[in-house]
């Protein structure tokens, strides 16, 4: 009795995992398929848009943040793609992020509250 109960719960657990993973996969695919190439790279700090570049520009710039300007992310825009070359944040997640070019794609640096995103302007 107890054992069959455990087996049933194990099966339900698997169904639950299946539902969770397929829901997030569906969400991801919807996200991915609705993406188009963007034409602007916008940089926002603390939720406010601070800089904006054309994606066709060749840019190498330091994004300085923090109360005393102690935080730095180096933004590169080259060949229609944007990426972060270097950063002073502890986790370096933004540096490891692949280059972005599709509308809506972002690189986020949570410690510095910097978001680099691709946008579409007509």
């Amino acid at each position: 009795m107890l054992k069959s109960d455990g087996l049933k719960k194990g099966k339900n657990d698997l169904i639950l995992v299946g539902i969770i993973l397929s829901l997030s996969l569906v969400g991801f695919l919807i996200f991915k398929l609705t993406m188009k190439d963007g034409n602007r790279i916008s940089v926002s700090i603390n939720g406010e848009e601070k800089y904006s570049y054309s994606i066709t520009d060749n840019v190498e710039t330091d994004i300085i943040t923090g109360d005393n300007g102690e935080n730095k992310n180096v933004l590169i825009i080259k060949d229609g793609k944007a990426y972060i070359k270097g950063a002073t944040c502890p986790d370096k997640i933004c540096v490891g992020h692949r280059p972005i070019s599709k509308d809506g794609e972002t690189i986020v640096c949570l410690p510095h509250k910097v978001v680099v995103s691709v946008t579409e302007e007509k």
């Binding site: 939720g47 809506g104 972002t106 986020v108």
Partner: peptide
């Protein structure tokens, strides 16, 4: 907090 919906992208990884 970051006023950007695009981070939703990470949800597949975080799931």
């Amino acid at each position: 907090l970051l006023q950007t919906k695009e981070i939703g992208y990470y949800m597949i990884v975080l799931a």
